[in-house]
Computed example of a mutant assay.
Amino acid sequence: MDKKIGWGLFVGRVILGVIMMAHGFQKLGHMENTVQVFSKLGQPEWLAYVTAVIEAVGGLSLLVGLFVVPSAILLGLTMVGAIVLVKLPAGLIGGFEFPLALLGLSIILAVTGSDKLSVSHLINNKSGLK
């Protein structure tokens, strides 16, 4: 892979990881509020927990570069949910543009992966897989 592309994917992975991790830990830290918000949206309580864990753990996984592709897929699915279930009625501007950008970045990482400065890269090099 071209070095510039690898560094670009690394930066995107870290940015998406930080954003999603922050959102996930915020939800987990205020679970009662998170459950109430999901309930007001007509969503089941369990979905609030699943979303919070996916965002927190998936974001952390991206940040350290472990399970990048599955984490990006799960985070992308949470963004589809945010767009369809919450943001779509508000339109693009002031509505779903932010989750759409995060979805785009999730799709890029799900398709390409990102192993620059990652735990996965270290593990694969030490085990002789790469």
Rank of each mutant, 00 (worst) to 15 (best):
D2L: 04
K4F: 15
I5M: 14
W7M: 09
G8V: 09
F10Q: 03
G12Y: 00
G12H: 01
R13G: 11
V14S: 04
M21E: 00
M21D: 00
A22T: 10
G24C: 01
K27E: 04
L28K: 09
L28F: 00
H30N: 12
M31P: 00
N33R: 06
V35K: 06
Q36L: 13
V37N: 07
V37L: 08
V37A: 08
V37H: 06
K40L: 11
K40R: 12
L41V: 02
Q43A: 15
P44L: 13
E45I: 08
Y49T: 12
V50C: 02
I54L: 06
E55V: 10
G58E: 02
L62G: 05
L63R: 03
V64F: 13
V68A: 01
V68D: 00
V68G: 01
V69T: 11
P70A: 03
P70G: 04
A72D: 03
I73R: 04
I73N: 04
L75C: 04
G76Y: 07
L77S: 03
L77T: 03
T78V: 15
M79F: 13
A82N: 07
I83G: 07
I83A: 11
V84D: 09
V84Y: 15
V86M: 11
L88R: 12
L88P: 04
A90E: 12
G91F: 01
G91N: 09
G91S: 08
I93L: 14
G94K: 04
F96R: 08
E97D: 15
I107A: 14
I108W: 11
L109M: 04
V111I: 15
V111H: 02
D115E: 14
V119F: 03
S120H: 07
H121D: 14
N124Y: 08
K126F: 10
S127E: 09
G128Q: 08
G128Y: 07
L129D: 07
K130I: 13
